[in-house]
Design a protein around this nucleic acid. Structure first.
Length: 575
DNA sequence: GCCGTTTTCGGCCCGACTGTTTTCAGTCG
């Protein structure tokens, strides 16, 4: 039973308690405990004094955690699962419908699932309930429609251009002074539910009117004095919340809407210690009602006597608990000196070795590694041993021709379903860089998959394990694998783990990166896995994910000079 | 349910918007 499994049971319990109408603070206590478990760098059975060591975990939740670890589940959870209809939790996903309303719908109309809810809505039963009315009925129906039409969360890479376009367009409006995206998009989370834009203006009403009249607006969800929510169709149909604030409130509003909620809670608790209140308008002294405003976010943190926290770290994963000097000096875009995972026309890429090298050079890189697929991956035109030899000749020629960039000869080698590797040690020993990865039989048992990957890690010729969990965001779950054993073995053999920067992968994830670094001292390589030169731009997402994972330049081998990188690779073969 | 050198009880971040209400509850972030 790992931390993730325990926390998901606690969360499930909290969800059901909420639906039942339990004390919201009690519900929150379980959610908080779930988060503490998930974010703990230690496994639960490694905590010396038990779960109560974790922040926000007391007697009650510690007992619940123990029960899950001992029995695999919780009696309280099982009871609620039996008591409440299985179709009730999914109703929570309907925007505008919360636990209180669902409770009433269930109690008074016997609504047990989505289908029954749609029935009573169309029959006009809902408007008769106390606290409900015609408009609310309509709102719920629209909410169901919205939920069905759109994915719950969009890939960051799809939302970013929408935010950037709107930002630029708003800046051109004469009444707008400043605009900045906030929310999970600014924190560069891998997926976002909607886009938040904070807008500084002296004329919120005029700007609000202008926003709802934009041609791309498909639907107006809210239109108040300071908050306008719309759905825009700009490549994707996504909700955008505009917060219209006075210029002097811009910074505290930006801080507020950047979140995360959990980080905001910590900020406000901190302010309380000084007798202050933080809201989107500033910091207010509770005694004399004096309001402080700011021109930079840094000043707010300074006022609260905390170190400045960059948006990517604002998740309450420890950033408010460590002294400033222990916050990571996170990676910057310019720190990356090369890309160690890419494909060419030799397998399933669309460019030549030289074209990739030229594109990398243009980005200012000092080196790249060409890592086409290996022979077993037939769908991708994997290379055989003699192909590798001919490719090496081409790489040598490019190195001869081009100055200022070095092309390493590598491979992305399949780890076969039975754990064998696709090439012999003899072949691997002749390559500058060997990446190993799983591309088949994703549904093997946890034990088998773990042993399969361990086998690759233990091979001294394997330098990097690519996309270690195999997940595709929104499309395919990570395969079952014991990551702790993977991390342990990688630490021992000095094997590098990849942060694959492809926007669909971002694998390892932010949470796993942090854990692998802090608990095991792993080194990483941030690679784009580019199949065409323009895909080098994915590095931006890799860097932001690395920042979210608290990585610093020394944790990432492709920030090293070529010489230092070669040394690091050599250390693997000698480990 | 958790938490506390002002507290072992009484708080728990804070405000906007909407809809159903005549002063507030639910939802959201």
């Amino acid at each position: 039973m790992n931390n993730k499994q325990v926390s998901s049971q606690l969360n499930q319990l909290a969800d059901l308690m909420e639906l039942k109408g339990e004390n919201p603070f009690k519900v929150n206590a379980y959610r908080k405990a779930a988060r503490a478990v998930e974010n703990s760098r230690q496994a639960l059975d490694e905590l010396e004094k038990g779960p109560e060591e974790l922040p926000g975990v007391g007697k009650g939740t510690a007992a619940a955690i123990q029960e899950i670890m001992n029995t695999g589940t919780l009696e309280a959870l099982q009871n609620l699962l039996e008591e409440l209809p299985t179709g009730l939790p999914e109703l929570m996903k309907i925007p505008g419908l919360g636990p209180k309303s669902i409770h009433v719908l269930y109690r008074d109309l016997g609504v047990k699932n989505m289908e029954e809810l749609e029935n009573v809505l169309t029959e006009g039963e809902v408007r008769k309930l106390p606290g409900f009315g015609e408009k609310k009925e309509k709102k719920i129906l629209e909410g169901i429609l919205r939920m069905k039409e759109r994915p719950a969360r969009f890939l960051l890479i799809h939302a970013l251009p929408v935010a950037e376009t709107l930002e630029k367009r708003l800046m051109e409006h004469p009444d707008v002074q400043r605009v900045k995206p906030a929310g999970s998009l600014r924190r560069m989370k891998e997926t976002v539910k909607d886009i938040d834009l904070v807008v500084a203006t002296e004329r919120p009403t005029a700007v609000g009117e202008w926003i709802v009249s934009m041609p791309e607006v498909k639907e107006v969800i809210n239109h108040g004095e300071t908050k306008v929510s719309v759905v825009v169709g700009m490549g994707i149909d996504i909700q955008v919340d505009f917060r219209l604030v006075e210029p002097r409130h811009f910074i505290t509003a930006l801080l507020h809407f950047t979140g995360s909620t959990e980080h905001n809670v910590r900020i406000r608790q901190r302010a309380k210690e000084f007798g202050w209140k933080v809201n989107e308008y500033g910091i207010v002294d509770s005694e004399n009602e004096r309001e402080l405003t700011f021109t930079e976010e840094k000043e707010v943190y300074q006022q609260l006597q905390c170190p400045f926290v960059i948006p990517e770290l604002r998740e309450d994963r420890g950033e408010m608990d460590v002294p400033g000097e222990r916050l990571p000096q996170v990676l910057q875009e310019g720190d990356i000196r090369g890309d160690l995972h890419m494909h060419t026309r030799w397998s399933d890429g669309s460019a030549s070795v030289k074209e990739m090298a030229l594109a990398a050079q243009k980005r200012g890189y000092e080196y790249i590694a060409i890592t086409d697929h290996s022979k077993s991956l037939k769908v991708a035109g994997g290379l055989k041993e003699d192909d590798l030899k001919r490719q090496r000749e081409e790489i040598d020629a490019v190195n001869e021709e081009l100055d200022g960039i070095t092309v390493l000869a590598g491979i992305e080698m399949d780890i076969l379903p039975d754990g064998r590797l696709d090439f012999s040690d003899q072949v691997l020993s002749e390559l500058d860089l060997v990446i190993a990865s799983v591309h088949s039989s994703f549904r093997q048992s946890r034990d088998r998959m773990t042993r399969r990957i361990l086998n690759a890690i233990e091979n001294p010729f394997v330098h990097i394990i690519a996309h270690p969990t195999g997940r595709l965001i929104n499309r395919r779950d990570p395969y079952e694998v014991d990551l702790d054993r993977i991390f342990e073995a990688a630490a021992e053999t000095k094997t590098i783990l990849e942060l694959n920067a492809n926007p669909n992968r971002l694998d390892l994830s932010d949470v796993n990166l942090k854990k692998a670094k802090e608990a095991y001292g792993i080194h990483f390589s941030i690679n784009t896995d580019a199949h065409a030169p323009e895909m080098f731009s994915f590095i931006r997402l890799g860097i932001s994910t690395a920042r979210r994972g608290w990585l610093e330049p020394e944790d990432v081998v492709n920030t090293y000079s070529l010489e230092a990188l070669r040394k690091r690779l050599k250390a693997i073969r000698n480990a």
